[in-house]
């Protein structure tokens, strides 16, 4: 069996009484595009820090590229690239100078040639001499990615790489990611954009420091097969939500814009019962339709499951 390139075993981090990461375990195989999905504060960044060798875990262990993250952090750092959520490059250096700097730090041989290559990969041709602070947001992200791959690491950690970028540019960025995958890089991406999560080959859903699910997006969505997701437009929305949440057969209910997504267990009978309860409570149902369970639904469901268990 091929060895996992990234492996976390019961990884935990406590800050005093607060448990930021709670016994997280997962594996990422070579060449995978693996996603970490969860809301802010769920523990994504803390987990990545431990994987990068930046933070020592309170308990558990992690291995990246055949080295222990806590004990051999120096070796780990040589084999990974990291792109931070915030812009952490030097605003008063040019694109080329930033890349050159990190290239030298990583001891890249034939630096000039590699720089040329990287600029090509991340599509920053023509912008080499522009100061980093004068770049548009989209270009900045690509520069950050460039600095992360300048030394050709086998593993890439991308922390919310597309935050603040519009959907069109987000798509382009993911093209880049898959380009890198095709060259054999293993990539772990964190995101809180549900639609982005669909781009990943496998996902880990994180909530409150715990892994709620770890599988392909399709499989996760299938977990809801027993649950009927209905999309309702009701008035008053708040009142409707209250009723639904207190209904026995309704596993979850939340608002999506004007509509409500409700997960109902128990087949068509249960669905009818829910409608009747709504009506008897003075809620006017404008429209209903069956919906495909989306990742968001799955997420909310799982979070709630996690809370109750």
């Amino acid at each position: 069996m091929a060895e996992a390139v990234i492996e976390a075993k019961e990884l935990s981090k406590r800050f005093g009484d607060f448990v930021a990461v709670d016994r997280v375990s997962f594996q990422v195989m070579a060449g995978e595009v693996f996603g970490f999905l969860g809301p802010n504060g769920a523990g994504k960044t803390t987990t990545i820090r431990m994987l990068c060798g930046l933070m020592k875990p309170s308990s558990g262990s992690a291995r990246v590229a055949s080295h222990d993250c806590a004990k051999e952090s120096e070796k780990v750092k040589k084999r990974i690239g990291y792109m931070s959520q915030k812009f952490t490059l030097y605003p008063d250096l040019t694109v080329r100078e930033n890349l050159e700097f990190y290239g030298s730090i990583y001891g890249v041989k034939n630096l000039k040639a590699r720089l040329h290559e990287v600029i090509g990969i991340v599509w920053l041709q023509g912008l080499e001499n522009k100061l980093a602070k004068d770049l548009a947001v989209g270009h900045r992200q690509r520069l950050a990615l460039g600095c992360a791959i300048v030394h050709n690491p086998p593993v890439l950690f991308l922390d919310e790489p597309t935050s603040g970028v519009d959907p069109e540019k987000r798509r382009k960025f993911w093209e880049l990611i898959y380009e890198l995958k095709s060259q054999g890089t293993t990539i772990l991406v964190t995101t809180h954009y549900m639609d982005e999560a669909e781009y990943c080959e496998r996902l880990a859903l994180i909530g409150s420091g715990r892994i709620l699910a770890c599988d392909t997006p399709a499989a996760i969505k299938k977990a809801l097969w027993s649950v009927q997701v209905v999309e309702l437009v009701c008035e008053p929305q708040i009142g409707a939500l209250k009723v639904l949440k207190s209904h026995r057969a309704c596993l979850f209910a939340s608002a999506f814009g004007k509509a409500i997504h409700a997960g109902i267990v128990g087949g068509d009978e249960a669905v009818r019962s829910v409608y009747e309860t709504l009506l008897s409570n003075g809620v006017v149902v404008h429209s209903t339709s069956k919906a495909e369970p989306s990742l968001e639904d799955a997420f909310i469901y799982l979070v709630q499951q996690g809370k109750s268990s």
Binding site: L54, E74, K77, Y82, I105
Partner: peptide
């Protein structure tokens, strides 16, 4: 400094 810390 964050980016520097990740390097070897």
């Amino acid at each position: 400094i964050e980016q520097l810390v990740v390097t070897p």
